[in-house]
Structure formats: C-alpha cells, structure tokens
Amino acid sequence: MKHLVKTILCGAAVMLTPMIAQAQTIGPKGEAATPSSEIVVSDSSAETLKNGNYTAALLWHDQSDFVNAVTAGATAEFERFGVEVVATTSAGFDAAKQRSDIETALTKKPSIILSLPLDPVTSAAAFKEAKDEGVKLVFLSNLPANYEHGTDYTTVATDDLFQMGKQAADALAASMEEKGTVGWIYHDADYYVTNQRDNAFKTTIENDYPNISIVAEQGISDPARAEEIANAMLLRNPDLGGIYVTWAGPAEGVLAALRANGNKTTKIVTLDLSEPVALDMVRGGNVAAIVADEAYELGRTMAAAAMLDLLDQDVPPFIVAPAVTVTADNVSEGWMQSLRVEAPESLR
C-alpha cells in the first residue's frame, strides 16, 4: 500500500482529466505522454552544467520507499552533471508545511525544484514565489492550477499508469493461459492514479483477451476490508481463475482469504511492490505477478528534464516512466529496476 497516499494526492488531478479509459496515459491537461527514455542529457553538456554551479531542492509530499527511490534516481542524475542537492524536505501531506518548505528552500537559491505538489489548488500560491524567481520547476504527478508549460514550469512526470494496468492484465492472462474468469477489485474513489491503472487493466482484458471474462467486479475504499470482499467474491464464484487487486495493501487481504479457503489455483495480480505479496509469489503461491513503476527512473528523468531546461533545450510537457512486471523469475532484478535497492532478504 505504499502508493495509497500518493494515490490519494493525485486525486485532485482527476478534475482536470477526462475519466474515459484511455489507450495510453495522458497528462493532467490531456497532454500526450513522452517516454522517460527520451529525456536524456548528453554527455557533451556536462561541462556547461558543471560550470553553471547549479543547485537543486527536492521538496516532497511525504516519505516512503517510492519517494526514496525517486530521490535516489534524481540525486544520482544530478551528481553526474555536478548539480548539488541543497535541501530535501517532506511536507507530511500538509499543504501549509509544503508552502513553508518551498520558502525555506528558496533561501538557498536553488536553480531547480523537484516536487510533488500536494494538490493543484493549494500549490498554486505555494509555488508562485519559486516560479517568479525563475526556478526550474519539475513536478511529479500533480500540476498547480493555471500554470503554463514552458513559462511557469518545465514538465510534469509520472508513472505510465496505463502501462501498469495493461501489464497487470497481460501477466494475469499469461498465468491463466489466456482463458477463464477474472474478478476485478478496483479502488472505489475518484483518484487519478488508481482509476487510470484499474481501468487500463479492465480495458486490456476486454479488448485483448476474448477468452477471459470479468465475472465479478467489486470496489474497495478501505484496504482493511479486502479479505471480506474477496471471501464474498469467492463464495459466489468458486472457480475464479484470477483476481486483479488495485494495489498491494488490499492484495494482502485477498491472499489471506484465498489461504483461509485452501484455494491454491486462483491467481492474483496486483500493483506496487510489497514484501509479503512478493514472498507468496516466490514460494509459488497464488500471486502470479506484481507490476511496479520505475520510481528510480522517474527521479532520473525529472532531474534530466530540469537540466535540459537549464540548457535551454525543449522539454515535453508530460513524461512517463515505464512499468515493470515482476514475477517469481525476476524478483531481484525487478526490485532493482523499480526502486534501485536490493530486494528484501526473504525474496532472494
């Protein structure tokens, strides 16, 4: 459930986003996505950047292993080009604290700010001072209201949410040999991140896998209720081939339900890395795959985008970092690719 909170934050972006299921991830203002792999600072620019004595501040919304991985990716990329990180903060989801953090960081006159604005409305005034002072602003997932690409900010980066849902569908289909019945446990709230991911899963199954049918749909708003929901679903559909769970937290509850029923056949697929869920997968349990975002790459691309802007190069308005499908065969690699840390001991 490491992304739940991030997820909740991004909910505000929903207001700006058409809610129809897209065939790809689109930005807060409907921008087309540019893959993060296209955002590269050339080695030839290294000299210019180093001579610029540039500095950066990382002003996050909260602390989590996701934020740590983004920070690590950004810091490593900055280091390559001699950009010094002069402040790192966490607002703990407090909009007032985020405003204070921005003011405090500006004391150190950073050239770049990477940040996840807590929501479009409260962050508009909060980032105004930084914007007016010409700091290069690279945002994660959210965009302050009425900010213009190019003049006010550099870019918005986020996970490739559609890909995450699609890859979850592909992985579950593969584990079911592309036939059977599926239960869909989606996040029952107006939240940009989960809605995009959940709908991408559903769309993919419906469009790409004619022999798989979604026979049960159940929304969840409280992860603690996942076990009851899964129990009810299994009672009505005892021969479910697979279950999609919106993120890892509730997936743990679904797993508990399957174990309690002695069910060893129903496959589970979920999003975001979690040690207990991955452990079941490694031990050959119900979990078929976990789809994760490449948080480290997300951080790298944010840093790269900011530096490109410093070099007066064009940066596209909306960048997405890829998703990675983690199965029992590639847990160590998957963990490394997503978070750039070793997988937990139990999984290796």
Binding site: F93, K97, A124
Partner: peptide, 16 residues
Amino acid sequence: LYAGRLQAAKYTLGES
C-alpha cells in the same frame, strides 16, 4: 491566516 497564506483551504490544514 492559512487560507490567506495559501490562497486556498484544504481539509488537512492544522492537522499536523
């Protein structure tokens, strides 16, 4: 003061 400073209000204000 928070509403004035942030030019916005949010349910999380004051919580921390």
